[in-house]
Structures are given as structure tokens and as C-alpha cells.
């Protein structure tokens, strides 16, 4: 792949992701915010692919953008929260300034950390053609137990969600 084109696209998707995220945070309407977040996730998916994690990129689109965000939108619509609420749901100027300061400080620290502790060396991915194998092999061998536990967690989450959200006499 042409390096310049690659770099250009990498920056492009990264900046779009950040711009979308900013838009997501600043939208008053939950539906608009959710859609901007979906946009961010698509961009991230592109970045994943460019970082040789094609399988994860696909799963990102399928699971996050496809499933989780759809659930969010369902809930927004179910609760009829589509319009920006009358009461502002964003904090006042003082809160926003403080939050901005905290964010800037955190950003600065994260930069400092990443410069301090990570080498500039880039290792080569073994095989571009083989996409799923590098992920699945450790998942089903080395991380088999966490994998199984995660499935149990999912099951519990499903049951819990049903119990919590079910409108009925048994749940107060």
C-alpha cells in the first residue's frame, strides 16, 4: 500500500472520529448524539483495519455499531427521549470549564505517558492473508477460561436485563 495514501487515510479517519465524537458530546438530542457516536465507531473500525486488525474491525461494525448502538436507539425511542429535553442536560459554564480543564490535564498526562513508556519500534504482523486465525488461536487456547466466563457473564446480563426492565408486579 502506498505509504502516503495510507497515512492520509489514517489521519482522515482519525480526525473524523474525533470530530464526530465532539459532535456526539455536544448534541442535545440523544438521537443525534447516538448517530454521531455510530459515525465515530465506523471511523474506528476503519482505523482497526488499517492497524492490521481486520477481524476486530468487522466485529466493531457488527457488534458496536450494529447491535449495541441500536439497542441504545431503541431505548431512546422507547422512552420517547428523542427531543432535546426542556431542562438542559448539559452543565453550566463553570462545570464545562472545569470538565475541560480535567480533560486537558488528562490528555497531557496520557501523552506524557505514551511518550515515556512506549518504544517507537513497530513489529510486523505475520500474515495479512490470515485474518481470523491470529485472534481465534489465543482466544480458544490461552484465553479459553476467560472466554467461557465471558459467555456466562453475557447470559447473566441477559437475564438481569429482562428482570430489571420487565414491567410487572414482581418488580417494584
Amino acid at each position: 500500500m502506498n505509504t502516503l495514501v495510507y497515512t492520509f487515510h489514517f489521519y482522515l479517519f482519525g480526525l473524523i472520529a474525533i470530530a464526530s465524537a465532539l459532535a456526539f458530546v455536544t448534541r442535545k438530542s440523544p438521537v443525534a448524539a447516538a448517530l454521531w457516536l455510530v459515525n465515530t465507531m465506523f471511523c474506528l473500525s476503519a482505523l482497526f483495519v488499517m492497524l492490521d486488525a481486520q477481524f476486530i474491525g468487522a466485529v466493531q461494525v457488527l457488534v458496536y455499531a450494529g447491535a449495541i448502538m441500536v439497542v441504545f436507539l431503541f431505548v431512546v425511542m422507547l422512552l420517547n427521549l428523542g427531543q432535546a429535553s426542556d431542562v438542559t442536560d448539559i452543565r453550566g459554564l463553570g462545570g464545562r470549564l472545569t470538565a475541560g480543564l480535567v480533560g486537558l490535564a488528562m490528555l497531557a498526562e496520557l501523552f506524557a505517558l505514551s511518550r515515556l513508556h512506549f518504544p517507537r519500534l513497530v513489529g510486523a504482523m505475520s500474515d495479512h492473508a490470515n485474518i481470523v486465525n491470529p485472534v481465534s488461536a489465543p482466544l480458544f487456547q490461552e484465553y479459553l477460561l476467560p472466554f467461557e466466563v465471558t459467555s456466562v457473564v453475557l447470559l447473566v446480563a441477559v437475564v438481569g436485563a429482562v428482570v430489571l426492565a420487565k414491567r410487572g408486579d414482581n418488580v417494584s
Binding site: 475541560g100 486537558l104 490528555l107
Partner: peptide, 24 residues
């Protein structure tokens, strides 16, 4: 591209934090 990816990651994370702090 790694450092750029980490940069994007940090920015996005911070935006998330600011969002949590500012929204109600």
C-alpha cells in the same frame, strides 16, 4: 502510525470523560 493511533485514542477517551462530566 502507532503514536498517531495512541494520540487519537487519548483524545477520544478524554472527550468521553468530558462528556461524562458535563452531561446530565
Amino acid at each position: 502510525m502507532i503514536s498517531e493511533a495512541l494520540f487519537f485514542s487519548a483524545v477520544l477517551f478524554t472527550i468521553g470523560v468530558v462528556g461524562v462530566l458535563t452531561r446530565r
